[in-house]
């Protein structure tokens, strides 16, 4: 990587930061409790739209892990979720009616909030349908992980997306808000992921899982990216470049070992395929606010019409993080 490329990356980072600065004005505070934030707090950043079904469990789950404060951008919800979030004692909410797509799928808003409130904190940037699992998460709180990362001088912690799905047609199961979504979606693909190295950003590009297997059979190159770096010791110089898939400066993306060793990593359990999914897919198809002209949702619609079942004989049923570690989806690294 030459000087010229480094310079280009630097320009790109500055541009993204400026963009975030500009998009900040699209956010208007609904409830601002950020005065509660203490220097050692772990902060959760999230964008949501009409996720009332997922939010109760989302908050419960991350509070259980020891997250100290939540910062939400509400994108024009009309299902009561904004009001619900405003009532939570540890949540700050901003709202916007601006275009999700024009804000690079919410990332400009996230970058703006991260820059304003994340500096110096461990920040976890996740969607409401992403639940973080990391080594020892059943016995050690998030602060245990972040303290350890600090002691190792590690600034970013990766967690790939793991699509969870039910057995049987997606729309058929029932889910009540507040319920553990994994009771409805306990299945996942254990070992059909493909990885290539993105030398421009230094990150790995991971694809595969049920979405590639069922929806993107004919165009595997377009299957969604699953690599994510959600947990970062934030500095105001940083930006997320494309979703939480990669960051700038790109040294932050070197979350993997390329000499044979294993660094520590976690998994984001992706609860996209709750029973609400077919309706949501329809809606998103008409809104066309998602990545790549909502290509993903077009593919879903094509298959979901036939009541697709993502489950197969070799689907794996989720037990705990140790299982994911043994399967090689995540690693303890040298954390013991």
């Amino acid at each position: 990587m030459g000087l010229w490329d480094s310079y280009r990356m630097r320009l790109r980072r500055k541009r993204l930061r400026l963009r975030a600065l500009r998009k900040r004005h699209e956010l208007s505070p609904v409830t601002d409790r950020t005065a509660q934030i203490r220097p050692d707090h772990v902060l959760v950043f999230s964008t949501q739209r009409n996720e009332m079904a997922r939010l109760p469990w989302f908050l419960k789950y991350y509070r259980g892990l020891g997250a100290d404060h939540f910062l939400f951008v509400d994108n024009d919800s009309d299902d009561g979720s904004r009001e619900y979030l405003s009532q939570q004692p540890d949540v700050s909410v901003w709202s916007t009616g601006a275009s999700y797509r024009a804000s690079r799928f919410g990332m400009d808003w996230m970058n703006a909030l991260l820059r304003r409130h994340g500096h110096g904190h461990w920040t976890l940037t996740v969607d409401p349908d992403e639940l973080l699992v990391y080594p020892f998460c059943d016995t050690r709180p998030l602060a245990g992980l972040t303290d350890w990362l600090d002691s190792c001088g590690i600034k970013a912690f990766p967690a790939m997306l793991l699509d969870m799905y039910p057995k049987g047609p997606i729309g058929e199961a029932t889910y009540t808000p507040g319920q553990d979504p994994l009771e409805v979606l306990p299945w996942f693909d254990a070992g059909n992921y493909t990885i290539s190295r993105n030398w421009g950003y230094n990150n790995l590009w991971i694809q595969g899982g049920p979405r590639a297997r069922v929806f993107f059979r004919d165009q595997p190159g377009r299957a969604p990216a699953l690599n994510k770096i959600p947990l970062v010791r934030w500095h105001r110089r940083y930006v997320y470049a494309s979703s939480t898939h990669n960051l700038l400066p790109r040294g932050l993306n070197l979350v993997f070992d390329d000499m044979g060793g294993e660094k520590s990593s976690g998994v984001l359990l992706h609860t996209k395929f709750l029973p609400t999914f077919p309706a949501k897919a329809d809606e998103e198809l008409s809104r066309r606010q998602h990545y790549g002209d909502s290509r993903e949702y077009i593919a879903y619609a094509a298959v979901l019409d036939g009541d697709a079942d993502l489950w197969c004989r070799y689907s794996e049923k989720y037990i705990n993080w140790r299982q994911l570690e043994i399967l090689g989806l995540m690693s303890k690294g040298n954390w013991a």
Binding site: D258, G260, E262
Partner: peptide, 29 residues
């Protein structure tokens, strides 16, 4: 326990390619 942790960090599990272990050609162990 700790020796195993160090071993995993430095040598990794042979034949595994994943988000935090992606060896270059020739360094796969």
């Amino acid at each position: 326990v700790f020796a195993k942790a160090v071993e995993r960090r430095l040598r990794g599990r042979p034949g595994l390619y994943m988000q935090s272990r992606f060896p270059r050609l020739g360094h796969e162990n």
